[in-house]
Amino acid sequence: MKDETTQSIMDLDRMVHEPARLAILTVLSAAEEVEFLFLLKVTGLSKGNLSVQAQKLEAIGYIKTLKAFRGRVPVTAFQITAEGKTALSKYHDHIRSLLPEPK
């Protein structure tokens, strides 16, 4: 039993499990598209960290980066992909199954 639980914990999607990436995916799952600045303010991550984590999520296909211009200023926005939504949903189910029943 113990081995099964340990294995189950080990099977958690590490890409989603990391707190910064989990926060990014959670925010993106609540909207169609979110700009870098809003993500920065809501997650409280540093610019560098947010960029790195977003790149990792994009590399695995969980999010999509959109580049546009507001006037002459370049604006970066992110969108969660169908794979990202599925991964987040699976992660939630997985975590719930690991947590003890509330007394």
């Binding site: 609540a30 909207a31 169609e32 598209e33 700009e35 809003f38 993500l39 926005a77």
Partner: peptide, 11 residues
């Protein structure tokens, strides 16, 4: 949007 950034709702 310059101050807070944009978020487009799922519509």
């Amino acid at each position: 949007d310059k101050h807070l950034g944009a978020a487009i709702p799922r519509d």
